[in-house]
Simulated scan of single mutants.
Amino acid sequence: MRVLMIEDAEDLAEGVVAHLGRSGVVCDLATSVEAARDFRAVQGYDAILLDINLPDGSGLGFLDEIRGGGDRIPVLMLTALTAVEDRVAALDKGADDYLGKPFDQRELEARLRALVRRDADRKSEQITLGPLVYAPKDRSATLGGKRLNLTAREAAVLDALIRHEGQFLSKARLYDSLYGFEDADVGVNAIELYIARLRKKFSGSGVAITTQRGVGYRIGLHG
């Protein structure tokens, strides 16, 4: 899971980033609305943690911008404004949940995972690529009707590739998908190993992972 946190209280934000990281959640931090726009321009996210009072604008205004563009990404508001009217205003503008400061990190993580899980249930339960059928919910896959035996790391790399079918993902981006594994002290080049293993599993199926030197890897149907 990858989330974007938009929060200018850096001590608080760094604590959240560290806590989520230990749980296997990649969390990018933007300290302003403008920085958040820049992050979203180059990176996709599973959810957004959004403060209301930001140095260059209102989080509610940014939420309006997101929803106005038709984006239904889960948004969890984080703010010191805890009056009922503030909560109602955020929810009316399209927020999915609301958590007042100060908060318990465990509750934040639980609410975040619930929102992402709800969003996943709302979307298609399976992604199909030719003979490959992938279930994001439990990161399982079948190929030609037979279940693939995937390690957790292989499944994480496949998850990133198939969610961005047709797009090249860099080694660094794929390495991000492994963030949070307890022994994730391996280098970025270890991605080559997981790609090789997946290619071997897909051999002869028509599903291929192609490489563009200096750019990255892309999954698709061969020919």
Rank of each mutant, 00 (worst) to 15 (best):
A156I: 08
G24H: 06
K93W: 06
R111F: 13
R37H: 11
A196C: 00
V88R: 11
A30L: 05
T211V: 15
Y194N: 03
D92W: 00
Y175H: 15
Y194P: 04
L221H: 11
S203G: 11
D159C: 01
L150W: 05
L132K: 03
Q212R: 15
A95S: 09
Y175F: 15
K200A: 15
E34N: 13
G44W: 02
I209W: 10
I127W: 01
A190K: 14
A155T: 08
T142M: 08
D92V: 05
R197Y: 09
A135S: 12
F39G: 00
A30T: 05
H222P: 00
V188R: 02
V33D: 00
F62K: 04
E125S: 14
R153C: 04
Q43I: 07
V75R: 06
L63V: 07
F168M: 04
V25D: 01
R117S: 11
F168S: 08
A18T: 09
L198Y: 09
Q212L: 15
D96C: 03
N149E: 13
M77D: 01
R67A: 01
L198V: 09
G70M: 06
R213K: 13
Q212D: 12
E85G: 09
A208W: 00
R197D: 09
V26H: 13
G223M: 06
N53R: 13
L132E: 05
A89T: 11
F202D: 12
V33M: 10
R163T: 09
R118Q: 11
D71H: 06
V188G: 00
V17P: 02
Y179A: 11
V207S: 10
R40S: 06
R147L: 11
I195K: 02
D86H: 15
L12M: 13
T151G: 14
F62S: 01
I66Y: 07
A35N: 06
A47F: 01
K101P: 03
A13V: 09
F168N: 07
N53A: 13
A30Y: 10
G204L: 09
A196W: 02
A152V: 15
G187Y: 04
L29A: 04
R40C: 10
A156G: 03
V215N: 01
F181M: 03
R163E: 13
Y45T: 00
A160N: 03
V42Y: 08
L132N: 08
L78R: 05
L161A: 11
Y194S: 03
V17D: 01
K146A: 15
Y175T: 01
E85S: 15
A36T: 04
Q212V: 11
A18L: 12
K101A: 08
L148Y: 09
R213D: 02
T210L: 12
G216K: 06
A208R: 14
A18Q: 12
E182L: 12
I127T: 10
R113A: 07
V188T: 14
G223V: 09
V207T: 10
L50D: 02
A155D: 05
F181Q: 02
E182T: 12
R106C: 02
C27T: 14
T31H: 03
R218K: 15
A196T: 14
R139T: 07
A196Y: 07
G214T: 08
L91Q: 02
V188Y: 00
T210V: 15
R213Y: 12
A95G: 07
I195S: 05
